[in-house]
Amino acid sequence: MTTPEWLTRPETRFGPCTCCGRRSKGDLVEKTLAGSSRLIRSAMFSADMAARDGFLQRTDARVKVVATVALLLVVALVHHVAVVIGLYAAVLVLGVVSRIPCRFLLTRVWCFVPLFTGVVVLPAAFSFVTPGHVVVPLGTWFGTPVGLTSQGLTTAALVVTRVATSISLVVLVTITTPWPRLLAALRALFVPRAFVVVLALAYRYLFDLLNTVTDMYEARKARAPRDHDVARSRAFVAATAGATFGKAHALSEEVYLAMVARGYAGQATAIDRGRIACADVYVFAAAVTIVVAAMGVDHVLH
């Protein structure tokens, strides 16, 4: 092995290793790295929350899943904003008794619901989209008064509160339930076994693939500064996506062999532990009460 001559002298063409004040931001490499680390952090946060000793953490996952679906249905079925807000308050209380920081639940929802749902739904408040009784007139259009309608405002409020409540509920339940327990609950309830097995495997290897992607992007970052050429950047993203597929396929083959080596013959089984405790029955009863109460109040307001 002979070392080429250029490798033995220092490279001088790149200029000094000092700052010039120009910053590059919004790079796709940075964004993907940030997204991936956010995901892993959020998974770790969930694991921490699930390990706390709180009300929902003590509740059986099967009860939680059934109650969550029932509550989501109620949130979707009631017609009055007040009832939805009441249910939202109940979710926050559940969070507090489960020792989930209230700030987390609030920021998790209100940082992005107004941004996405709010902006999307806002035009619906106007008479152009939702005709009806104009409560905030904003002038006339060919003789008809236009502005915010009561129907429009109601529907916008209804959608925003519904979205916020549903997301809070799902987030609350998922972060108080360890993922394996949630899987066991799905298996125990109505979800086909094959689907749950695939779900479990997919979730487990998701982090492996994310690590692969992170490594590739970090290597890219370490090698060269941001590339402003869109076509070249796109080719890089496509190459990493293609290479990740190669890794995913090789891994699936290896995992299959590892499963077969330990007796897997196409029928997936898993250990099911835990039985419904007395407390879980009370929780379930409480959930049913909330469901019935919300529906009742909604009916009375009608």
């Binding site: 394996p180 899987l183 290897y205 891994l251 290896e254 330990r262």
Partner: peptide, 25 residues
């Protein structure tokens, strides 16, 4: 068979599920 890549071999959601996989199957 102890594979070279532990990542390929550890496919279950938890360590307990992992160790129980062989006997279960």
């Amino acid at each position: 068979f102890v594979f070279q890549s532990s990542d390929a071999q550890l496919f279950s959601p938890t360590v307990r599920d992992e160790v129980a996989f062989g006997p279960l199957h």
